[in-house]
């Protein structure tokens, strides 16, 4: 029977971080980029919670950090989607390749 160790959490976190980073850099659609960034933030949360569970189970430091990350990510997503909407109204596109009024 497989027992979960800290390494499982760290490897999962690292893989998710790379997947998210790839998505954020390779996708053209602004919302898809935001989704990639959310994935990166969640990989951070997995890493934090994994560390907290295995290194200091009696403290809640890592979990508290993760809760703050979730909160800030929600605020960021709210502002982000609002900005995406504004840009869509102005340009009729939110493809980051096509938003090129200013030299990228």
């Amino acid at each position: 029977m497989l027992t979960l160790t800290l390494n499982h959490f760290l490897v999962l976190g690292a893989i998710l971080f790379c997947v998210g980073l790839y998505g954020a850099l390779a996708k053209g659609h602004a919302v898809a980029v935001l989704m990639g960034i959310e994935l990166m933030l969640n990989s951070v949360n997995i890493t934090l919670v994994g560390f907290a569970r295995f290194l200091a189970p009696d403290q809640l430091l890592g979990q508290v950090f993760a809760v703050f990350v979730i909160t800030a990510a929600a605020a960021e997503a709210a502002v982000g989607l609002a900005i995406v909407l504004v840009v869509y109204r102005q340009r009729r596109t939110v493809n980051v390749e096509e938003v090129d009024l200013l030299k990228w």
């Binding site: 971080f17 954020a24 602004a30 960034i37 982000g80 900005i83 840009v87 340009r91 938003v99 200013l102």
Partner: peptide, 17 residues
């Protein structure tokens, strides 16, 4: 709007890193 979008996407990416 474009400035805000670029700032947001790259800024959020940097925060994640």
């Amino acid at each position: 709007g474009e400035a805000a979008l670029k700032y947001l996407l790259l800024g959020a990416l940097a925060s994640a890193v």
